[in-house]
């Protein structure tokens, strides 16, 4: 039982990750794919930040009278990863805009059909 209580947090985060992952690989709409990547990455960030949490701790900004802090290292990593995620999102969306201009559609299936025709 204690096994379950200690880990259900991570399990929910895994469900969140997989929701994003599912959107990326199952949806033919390109914008939805980018959004799926965004959700996938954001959920991984939640996972990292969950790792960093220390019971009874507080934000890692040193102050008099506080002794227990949460782990600052995953926070740093995720700050970097958020930026990387945004860069990917921006590039992905820019590509979607160009694909729409070139093909007139942002549906992957329709794009395949057009590519086959040529």
């Amino acid at each position: 039982m204690s096994e379950l209580l200690g880990h259900y947090n991570y399990w929910i985060v895994i469900v969140l990750m997989m929701t994003g992952f599912y959107i990326v690989i199952a949806r033919p709409n390109l914008i939805k794919k980018v959004i799926g990547l965004f959700i996938f990455q954001t959920s991984v960030f939640i996972f990292f930040i969950s790792i960093a949490k220390v019971e009874g701790g507080t934000a890692p900004i040193i102050e008099e009278g506080i002794s227990v802090y949460s782990n600052p290292l995953p926070h740093v990593l995720i700050l970097t990863a958020i930026v990387v995620g945004l860069a990917t999102t921006a590039l992905g969306l820019a590509l979607v805009v160009r694909i729409r201009e070139a093909y007139g559609t942002i549906n992957e299936d329709d794009i395949h059909v057009q590519d086959e025709e040529r």
């Binding site: 965004f38 954001t42 969950s50 220390v54 949460s70 995953p74 958020i82 930026v83 921006a90």
Partner: peptide, 22 residues
């Protein structure tokens, strides 16, 4: 979860810039 810096960034990016771009 005590990650205040990350929260600040996520709010500024996710709810701000990324939404605007989408």
């Amino acid at each position: 979860l005590d990650a205040v810096d990350v929260a600040l960034t996520e709010a500024a990016i996710g709810a701000g810039i990324a939404t605007v771009l989408m």
